[in-house]
Simulated scan of single mutants.
Amino acid sequence: MTSRLSVRLSRLLNMIPYFIAHPGISAAEAAADLGVTTKQLMSDLNQLWMCGLPGYGPGDLIDLSFSEESIEVTFSAGIDRPLRLTSTEATALLVALRSIVDMPGMVDPTAAHAAIAKIESAIVGGSGAELDGARTPPTEAPAVATVRSALARQRALRLVYYSASRDVVTERVVDPIRIVLVDNNSYLQAWCRQAEGVRLFRFDRIEAATELDEPARPPSHATEESAALDLFQDDPAVPLARLRIHGDYAWVLDQYPMHRLAVHPDGSLEATMRFATLDWMARLLLGFGSGVTVLGPPELVAAVRERSNAALAAYAAAGFEEAV
Rank of each mutant, 00 (worst) to 15 (best):
M1G: 13
T2M: 05
L5A: 14
S6E: 09
S6T: 13
I16S: 05
P17S: 07
Y18D: 06
A30S: 10
G35R: 09
T37Q: 08
T38P: 12
S43M: 00
D44Y: 01
N46G: 15
Q47H: 07
Q47L: 08
L48E: 03
W49T: 15
C51F: 06
G55C: 02
D60E: 11
F75P: 08
S76H: 06
P82V: 03
T88A: 12
A92T: 06
A92V: 01
L97C: 05
L97W: 03
S99K: 00
I100Y: 00
V101I: 14
M103I: 05
I116W: 02
K118T: 14
I119C: 13
S121Q: 03
G126R: 05
G128P: 14
A129F: 03
E130F: 09
R135C: 10
P137N: 02
A143G: 09
A145S: 13
V147Y: 04
A150Y: 01
L151C: 06
L151P: 12
A152F: 05
R153E: 15
R155E: 09
Y162P: 10
A164L: 10
S165L: 05
S165M: 10
D167G: 06
V169R: 01
V169K: 00
V169C: 04
V169A: 03
P176F: 02
I179L: 13
I179H: 12
L181Y: 01
S186V: 14
Y187H: 14
R193L: 10
F203G: 04
T210Q: 11
E211W: 05
A216W: 10
R217I: 09
S220L: 12
A222W: 01
E224D: 07
A227F: 01
A228K: 05
D230S: 15
D230F: 08
D230K: 09
D230C: 09
D234Y: 01
H246K: 14
D248M: 04
D248S: 14
A250K: 07
L261Q: 09
A262H: 08
L269K: 00
T272Y: 00
A276P: 00
A282E: 03
L284S: 10
G287E: 02
S290H: 04
A303Q: 11
V304K: 06
E306I: 04
N309K: 09
A310I: 05
A313W: 01
Y315P: 14
A316N: 10
A316F: 02
A317P: 09
A318G: 13
A318R: 07
F320D: 15
E321S: 14
